[in-house]
Nucleic acid binder design. Structure first.
Lengths: 192, 192
DNA sequence: CCGCTGTGAGACATTCATGTCTCATCTGGG
DNA sequence: CCCAGATGAGACATGAATGTCTCACAGCGG
């Protein structure tokens, strides 16, 4: 597996580099530019040719995360049908990006003070609106604010992603666990 | 507020330093030793006299977090009464340490590979046992594993702590929000 | 065949946090 | 009063990551 015999010159694949970096930084948020480059199979020089520095790389990852989120929001069609099903679709669609989001979730603590990226605000607004719609429709309880439900969703996504990475839970259970806990909670229902 | 007129020599207060460091690192996880020292009102030299380095400081914070957790576990008396009330008591008791735990929660991603501190394993075991007891008693649903409920609790505690820091939710709602979401979920109940 | 473009490898300077050290000063006890 | 202990301030060396640069070479098109 180490070398395939062709240490040839690879053309630069921006998307591949970003996704590899996301996967690495999710596991090791302090990885150096050199480690990122090696993980992506390119040289540090090339990495630096395309991303001015670590900040630029993280910002590109943030943009990727925002794009993935907005794609998931579109595919989940949050405006259609019951809000409950919208939440389930959202969790399902966002699952592939959960690792990247978990990294950004812990990294974004640094962005306080300089006004966070407008992209996150738009995403927040759409998710919050979903929970508010569910409350107005009588599906969701009204004693938990939409803002908190949104933050709780993020926290559960990150917890789920890390739990999968640590092998504490099975990847196949990811969507079910998060959606079920967020929607129904831990308490057993009295079945009708 | 800047100077009280007495820039005198302060005796070293280990607990005060640790708690100040925890508060700072919760907001800015990359704070330098110099920033930690200034925040605690001591010189970098003194800080380094008592903590061999950043690793030692983080480890001391980890030990503090473990101690706070175990204290909360004791006070919550998880073995008494319904597991549901045990969860509520645990969240209430652990609230003062939530910021520190949120920091350690994101920092502990680094500890992978070298075998994490045995203290966390003990805490994990006690919390997991609480959820399992609730399942056995018929209080909690059985299609969500105790391990996931434990991880979800950590994730919600971190999300709650960061939300309070960001001013997105009120500090007074912390315990209620976390316990209610974890136990009951977002769905509205059919009241009897 | 030749030249252009982009890459890999590595050298190099710079920056920054860290860790160690010295020295002056303050505090408290004998 | 004087000495021991501990702190604050700052200088200094170290190491790591970063950012910049050069050079050789592979691919690709004319």
């Amino acid at each position: 597996m180490s070398h395939l015999g062709y240490p040839r010159l690879m053309p630069f694949d921006r998307d591949h580099v970003l996704r590899t970096a996301a996967a690495l930084l999710t596991r090791k948020s302090t990885a150096t530019m050199d480690e990122v480059a090696k993980a992506a199979g390119i040289s540090r020089a090339t990495l630096h040719r395309h991303f001015a520095g670590r900040d630029a790389l993280v910002r590109a990852l943030e943009a990727l995360g925002i794009a993935e989120c907005e794609g998931a929001l579109e595919r989940a069609r949050l405006d259609e049908g019951p809000a409950t099903e919208g939440v389930r679709r959202l969790v399902r669609e966002i699952e592939p990006a959960a690792g990247l989001l978990a990294f950004l979730y812990s990294e974004n603590q640094l962005f306080e003070g300089d006004g966070q990226n407008a992209g996150w605000e738009r995403i927040d607004a759409r998710v919050t609106a979903l929970f508010r719609r569910g409350q107005d429709a009588g599906e969701f309880r009204i004693d938990l604010s939409p803002a908190w439900l949104t933050e709780a969703l993020y926290g559960l996504l990150a917890a789920g992603a890390w739990s999968v990475l640590d092998g504490k839970v099975a990847r196949n259970d990811f969507t079910f666990m998060i959606a079920e806990l967020l929607l129904g909670g831990a308490l057993r229902r009295e079945e009708s």
